[in-house]
Design a protein around this nucleic acid. Structure first.
Lengths: 255, 255
DNA sequence: CCAGGCCGCCTTGTATACAAGAACGGCGAT
DNA sequence: ATCGCCGTTCTTGTATACAAGGCGGCCTGG
């Protein structure tokens, strides 16, 4: 996915390190919880610690890693509750994208979206989850772009990037691919028809379903520690219970 | 000059610089477009360039400043279209907060919210816009917290922080304070009544109205350049038109 | 007089050296 | 033998030195 940045030898070292780490985290080469030692990273990327630190801070800002003062950086390990929280927001943002796309997409964009959806079908049949994953990503991004709101597009992408390390695990559940594709189909139809509300609702449910299967999966696998993000921000999170009292209301399929 | 952060000798220098700059930007001491020279900032804060660079990068990640490679950092100047885009997202996130708050707030939180709302009244009468601004902020944050979704709360706050340099300008419009307070009142009522949809819709409109007056204001004042954020992210934004074809659909007051 | 190119300064980007806090292991005391 | 204290060592945080690129001014040519 990053071959688009290859040709550019003129980029800052810090960016090269950041992109490299980002890729390693998203693809799962670096699993959540892994400690990131500045010196070793510097050796690995053949640069000094300065650009490494720069990259780490940017990744921390994007939420992919977590930096504890005087204790170094870890690949962010997101707890199940926090993941549920993120999906709650993401489903809403994606729904907004869909609503806006339904009313703002150009005819060309609508054609592209439909084409993208249909291009998924072969991999569905062959059960090639990784290839489907790739196209699925492009499908969702096409909807983001279709919102014609660059800020929204960026924010939504950031959140998707942030949960992607976990997303990967979940794709291989039997039957999920077909369901996902069918859900996409309904979303496409609604967008093409210009039905904002329907498109929004369908996409929201689509994301929420993934959330449900996710949380199920993580919980059964043994779950992740449910620590609060509590990053550098001094602005206190509210004191009391931070969990959603009603996790995704969409009924999700059981494992 | 930074006497507010003196007492705490135990925090990292970079954090001190970041907080200081954040404050200066949000309060308007540093206006959008101002160039931020690393060396001078280092002198001003009496630290070396290293923590300054760290702070700048974090601010860039949060969107408050913009870093152009090899050309230094500027306080982010947000164009009118981009601002409209941000409000489009913000209104949706705040609406989500309100919906969730309506169904998740504890009785104590509901009481606090109502109290906060009523505490605004005196400043309304006296026309003290700055004091009202402060309480207004706390009012909105109470709703964020009431969503019981820490991630949502954080994201919404980040966006609010990011637009706050512009927000300040808009408060002094005559009559706006009273309107704002009345809108808050309806939101509180809906939340206390547990009416999710109504609370969401009301808060969304409330934010959208501000968006409208904002964009009007900026446009008349002479407008800001409409440059694309185009930050460090290499992931290309979609190629074509990025502007909302229908700026906030809520009809906003003229003047 | 104006335009274009060249040169030098100033800024950012990177590397390295130094200081200070935290984890870990060893040693002693109970 | 186990627990706690202390020192070592490794890591991060900060400062400074060095390199490279952009911008502005100046000079020269038309």
């Amino acid at each position: 996915m990053a071959e688009d940045a290859v040709q550019n030898g003129r980029q800052r070292l810090a960016d090269r390190v950041r992109l490299g780490l980002e890729r390693e985290i998203v693809t799962g080469d670096l699993t959540p919880g892994t400690r990131l030692d500045e010196t070793r990273l510097a050796e690995r990327y053949e640069v000094s610690r300065t650009p490494v630190r720069e990259a780490l801070m940017q990744l921390a800002a994007s939420g992919l890693i977590e930096m504890r003062p005087r204790q170094g950086a870890l690949v962010a390990a997101i707890g199940t509750f926090q993941l549920a929280e993120m999906f709650e927001v993401m489903s809403e943002l994606e729904a907004l994208c869909a609503r806006l796309a339904a009313r703002r997409m150009t005819p060309a964009e609508r054609d592209d979206l439909a084409a993208l959806h249909e291009a998924c079908a072969p991999y569905l049949a062959s059960g090639d989850a990784d290839a489907y994953y790739e196209l699925n990503l492009r499908f969702h991004e096409a909807i983001y772009a279709g919102s014609h709101n660059a800020f929204l597009e960026q924010e939504t992408r950031k959140i998707r990037l942030r949960v992607s390390p976990y997303r990967r695990m979940q794709l291989h559940r039997p039957g999920r691919l077909a369901d996902s594709h069918a859900e996409h189909g309904r979303v496409v139809a609604a967008i093409l028809a210009g039905d904002q509300e329907l498109a929004g609702r369908l996409l929201k449910d689509h994301v929420a379903i993934q959330s449900g299967t996710f949380v199920d999966f993580l919980a059964t696998v043994g779950g992740l520690p449910d620590r609060r993000p509590g990053s550098a921000r001094p602005g206190r999170a509210h004191p009391g219970s931070a969990r959603p009292d009603q996790p995704p209301k969409t009924r999700h399929r059981t494992g």
